[in-house]
Structure formats: structure tokens, C-alpha cells
């Protein structure tokens, strides 16, 4: 494992911790898209079906468990916690995420590394992760003002993707048989979706003003 991959994983972990911190400390999930969170939980459940069949490393196994548990806990909290669920911006979170689900699954049936149950679900999780942030970005754009923790949550998610791209570039030049087009192309698409957000995040950071996205 190279330093870029590890940094990416740590950014991913940090984004989840920031989100948990926001929900627990403020007892509020305003500005957070439940649809995006549901999609992420599904991404991890579909991708880590290999938890029981393929062992890579203790690090991988622990991280997989952490991602599954934390993402389902966030969804559970937003739906079931008496206090937290009251702050959910339901009327703003109207993105049709079932469309993303159907499109990702259809693509996974067509483009996969092998036509097996696990490989189809793996490809599905890669495609779904690439677009799962869309409901969140749409919600932020609709609500206009973005609170600090929510902004940082999306920032760390984007940083995670950026480091994974550096990781692939590094692996491409250092490994002899590096070919993972499905993950790389989907990853590029996913990172591109953050470009706009990063631009406004940078502007607000530079001017030391509150993050605001144009309508």
C-alpha cells in the first residue's frame, strides 16, 4: 500500500467521523442528504461481499467493517433517532436516487470483470459510489448556505477521491500488471463531480467567508 492510498483512506475515514461528529454534537442532520447516505451504505454492503471470501489484509478487513457499520449507523440515526430526524431537510432532498440505483445496476450487468454474482455487485458498487454524492450536492445547492461541518464533510470526501487518483497514477508506474479500468474511469467521473464544489470551497477559504453555493 502506498502513501497516497493510505492518505485517501484516512480522508475517507475523516469525512465519516466529521459527519458523525456533526450529527452527535449538534443533534442535527440538516444539510445532509439521507439519499446519499443510503446509497453509500448500499455501496459498502455490495462491495464488501468479499469480506467472507477474500482476505487481503487485517487493515482492509477492519476498514471494511468500519465503513459498513458507520454508514449504516448514520442512515439509522437520520431515520430513527427521535431528535436527529426532525432536522432532516426532506423537502430539499428530492433527488431521484432510484434512478441512480437502476442505472448503476444495469451498467454493472453490462460492464464487469466477470459475470459472477460477486463481480457484478462489485462493479455495481463502483458505479454507484461514483454518482452517490449527487443528491448531497443538489441538496447543498438548494439550501444555499452550508454549515462548516457539512462543508468539511464534502471536502474530505472529495480529498479522498483525489488521493485515490494519485494512488492509481503511482501504481500504474510502479506495478507491472496494473489494469483496473472500471475503478479508474469511475473514479475520475466521481472526482470530476466534486470540481465545482472544490472551486467554491477554495473561494470561501481564501476569502475567509462562509461557504455559499450559487443557486
Amino acid at each position: 500500500m502506498n502513501i497516497f492510498r493510505f492518505a485517501g483512506d484516512m480522508m475517507h475515514l475523516t469525512s465519516i467521523l466529521v459527519l458523525l461528529l456533526k450529527i452527535y454534537a449538534t443533534k442535527s442532520c440538516s444539510g445532509i442528504s439521507l439519499k446519499t447516505q443510503e446509497l453509500y451504505a448500499l455501496v459498502f454492503l455490495a462491495r464488501y461481499l468479499d469480506l467472507f471470501t477474500d482476505f487481503i489484509s487485517v487493515y482492509n478487513t477492519i476498514m471494511k467493517l468500519v465503513f459498513i457499520v458507520s454508514s449504516t449507523a448514520i442512515v439509522w440515526c437520520m431515520k430513527r433517532d427521535r431528535v436527529v430526524r426532525r432536522s432532516y431537510d426532506k423537502q430539499l432532498d428530492t433527488f431521484r436516487h432510484y434512478f441512480l440505483l437502476a442505472a448503476s445496476f444495469a451498467l454493472a450487468l453490462l460492464v464487469n470483470e466477470k459475470f459472477t454474482f460477486q463481480e457484478i455487485f462489485w462493479a455495481f458498487s463502483i458505479y454507484l459510489e461514483a454518482v452517490a454524492i449527487l443528491p448531497q450536492l443538489v441538496l447543498l445547492q438548494r439550501s444555499g448556505n452550508v454549515d462548516n461541518l457539512t462543508g468539511q464533510y464534502v471536502f474530505f470526501l472529495g480529498a479522498y477521491r483525489a488521493f485515490y487518483i494519485l494512488n492509481w497514477i503511482y501504481r500504474y508506474f510502479t506495478e507491472t500488471h496494473f489494469s483496473r479500468w472500471i475503478a479508474c474511469i469511475s473514479g475520475l467521473v466521481q472526482t470530476a463531480l466534486y470540481a465545482d464544489f472544490f472551486y467554491y470551497y477554495y473561494i470561501s477559504w481564501k476569502n475567509n467567508t462562509k461557504l455559499k453555493l450559487p443557486a
Binding site: R5, N60, E113, K114, S179, A183
Partner: peptide, 10 residues
């Protein structure tokens, strides 16, 4: 057949 890429990333 072609070997499937090992999914060693998260």
C-alpha cells in the same frame, strides 16, 4: 480465461 483483478482497494 483472463484473470480477474484482485480487489485490494477499499
Amino acid at each position: 480465461g483472463a484473470a480477474v483483478t484482485e480487489h485490494d482497494e477499499l
